[in-house]
Computed example of a mutant assay.
Amino acid sequence: MNTRPITWVRVYVREGQHVLDKLVKFLREEQGVAGLTVSRGVIGVGGDGRLHASSLLDLSLDLPLVVEFYDEPERAGRAIEALLKRFDLAHVISLPALAHAKSG
């Protein structure tokens, strides 16, 4: 098994910010990150303390979104720096991690 160090990054936004498409395009095309996933939250509380939730009766258009990506530490660090310069992001976290892949 091959193991290599990576940095795992999570970017928290809301649907109502209307930045998802630009954010994904930026990470994919301009930064060329190794992997990227977007998840829609069912419920979340932002920095403003407001609850953002969905229900069958009230489908919110301002649900939380989590954009996750990973890459080698130096490349991920450059991507984070560029993200913060380009977008108005309040919540970006990064963690050291290991990527595991089968040999051969």
Rank of each mutant, 00 (worst) to 15 (best):
V92K: 02
L89K: 06
Y12N: 03
K85Q: 13
K25Q: 10
S39D: 09
F69E: 04
R78A: 07
R40L: 11
G32T: 04
V38H: 12
L98W: 05
A79E: 05
H91F: 14
T37W: 15
R40A: 12
S94R: 12
L56P: 05
A101L: 08
G104E: 13
V24W: 01
S54Q: 14
L61K: 14
S54D: 09
A90E: 12
P96F: 06
I6Y: 00
P64F: 00
S103W: 07
E72S: 06
V19R: 00
E74S: 05
N2I: 06
S103L: 09
Q31C: 09
E68L: 02
I43T: 14
V33Y: 04
R28N: 04
I43D: 12
G44E: 04
A53V: 06
E30L: 02
L95G: 08
L83F: 07
I93L: 12
R78D: 04
A53K: 08
G32R: 13
S60I: 06
K102C: 10
S94V: 02
G49K: 08
K22Q: 13
L23E: 00
K85D: 05
A97S: 00
E81I: 01
Q17T: 01
Q31H: 05
L20M: 12
G104Y: 13
G49E: 05
I80V: 09
F69V: 14
P5S: 12
Y12A: 02
D88W: 10
V19G: 00
P64R: 01
A99W: 00
A79G: 09
E72M: 03
N2R: 10
R4F: 03
V33L: 07
R14N: 15
F26E: 07
